[in-house]
Write a protein that binds this DNA or RNA. Structure first.
Length: 400
RNA sequence: GGGCAGGUACCCAAGUGGCCAAAGGGGGCAGACUGUAAAUCUGUUGGCAUAGCCUUCGAAGGUUCGACUCCUUCCCUGCCCA
């Protein structure tokens, strides 16, 4: 690929590249000098579960890696202690060092499902932010005005609604920008909501006489509810480590309106194929298209075989109402168990009250029979299959 | 520092001495209908228990037979003045 082809490749699925011509310059320079570009992505060490939404940006990083560049992951351990106002309506709670360490371990496991380890560099921003003197902080702060910071929708909304905004939250963007200075970043990626923060990095690098970074913003993947952005705290996410069956099931539950959004941002299909699917969607049952989507997504994070299996399992389970072949097994020691107790012990429900509720609402089946009696005593002489709610299956076995 | 308005369940919000585990809406969950979509309808949404009990309305104390409701102190948020 020559560099303008590379540019086309990289441009796919981006919202904005600021500025595009500088990106081409950087690609050219890198090619000539044989120096890989350093492509930065800030990561937040508070939520250790990666989902398809996070993956949109990570997959773009991966593309850079495939072109020979370096992914520079900036762990916001320092800024995590501040709390990020982006996309939040409330001040985020702060986090301890131990939690950060623990989260990062999980993070790395997951991140390398997408990124190439040899071309990935981790840096913790406390390394430099922790050393800033108050003098330097004031100097950094002097580069920005209150009006600029208030322009951000998230902040101004809170301000208009008389909600609290702590001063330290305003510093977040500045610190994140300083990360780019400290790491001599060439390109920084982020979701569209990060645009302001990314531009601050560009601004500050100029102040420090560095070549300003190119900023690339990526579209936001909508969550399984089809309304809010995919996020762990909204509970509308599909985790990249979920089992093929779960992943497929969650994809099937998204509203039709976001099918194309998912095809575009979460699958590896070429542009042409996606165009075809878009046409097809107009004339066929959306369910079938969605099934294809589920297959493609599972394929990215598992294998083709597992994707196929998940798809077939789904058809069996829901279209033909058969019981799945693989299900969670829970072992019990006694032959007779009070059903709510069993549901609680096996982790199928969080409380016994919840178990009662589900039973009363006909949501619990024992070997295909709906149970409505909350006093029901389950006999486990031979293995018993429980269905709890729409999705949960459980095989109960007696073990002596 | 002064003045004013507030802090109620996941969120918004009503409740101003017992009828309050706390109206209503949103969201969630479940059932029906479906394509595990959308829309719609119904139920449910603190915990434990077979009529009942326990914990909850910013926190701690107090008054009372009885407090989310009254009193005291404290903490927190917003607005205005300085």
């Amino acid at each position: 690929m020559n560099t303008s082809q590379q540019l086309e490749f990289i441009k796919r699925n981006t919202v904005e590249i600021i500025p595009e011509n500088e990106l081409l310059d950087k690609l050219n320079f890198s090619e000539k000098s044989k120096k890989p570009l350093r492509v930065k992505l800030g990561i937040d060490p508070t939520a250790p579960d990666m989902h398809l939404g996070n993956a949109v940006v990570l997959r773009k990083l991966r593309e850079f890696q495939e072109l020979g560049h370096i992914a520079l992951l900036i762990v916001g351990d320092f800024t995590a202690k501040i709390g990020d106002p982006s996309g939040r309506s409330k001040t985020r709670p702060q986090i301890t060092n131990e939690e950060i360490e623990k989260n990062m371990a999980t993070y790395k496991e997951q991140i390398f499902k997408i990124l190439i380890p040899e071309k990935t560099e981790f840096r913790y921003n406390s390394e430099w932010l922790g050393k800033l003197t108050s003098e330097e902080i004031i100097k950094l702060a002097s580069k920005f005005t209150l009006a600029q910071l208030l322009e951000r929708e998230e902040i101004s909304n809170r301000y208009k609604n008389n909600e609290p905004i702590s001063l330290h939250e305003l510093f977040y963007a500045i610190f994140q920008g300083y990360d780019s200075v400290a790491t001599m970043t060439d390109i920084e990626l982020g979701a569209t909501e990060q645009k302001f923060n990314l531009l601050v990095g560009r601004e500050l690098q100029r102040e420090y006489f560095q070549a300003p970074q190119v900023t690339m913003t990526m579209p936001i993947l909508v969550g399984t509810d089809g309304v809010k952005k995919m996020s762990k705290s909204y509970g509308n996410y599909i985790g990249i480590t979920e089992t093929p069956v779960n992943m497929f099931g969650k994809v099937m539950s998204i509203p039709d309106s976001c099918i194309m959004n998912y095809f575009q941002l979460a699958t590896n299909l070429p542009e042409v194929e996606i165009k075809n699917i878009e046409q097809l969607l107009k004339s066929s049952n959306p369910r079938d298209i969605k099934s294809r989507l589920g297959y493609e997504i599972v394929k990215v994070y598992h294998s083709e075989a597992e994707a196929k299996e998940a798809e077939q399992g789904f058809v069996k389970m829901f279209s033909k109402k058969e019981v799945p072949e693989d299900m969670r097994v829970y072992e019990v020691k006694e032959e007779k168990i009070w059903l709510p107790q069993l549901l609680l012990d096996s982790g199928a429900v969080p409380t016994k009250s919840e178990a009662r509720r589900l039973i009363e609402q006909k949501a619990v089946e024992v070997d295909g029979q709906v149970v409505t009696d909350i006093k029901f005593e389950l006999e486990v002489k031979s293995p018993v299959v429980l269905k709890v709610g729409k999705r949960q299956f459980l095989k109960v076995i007696l073990v002596k």
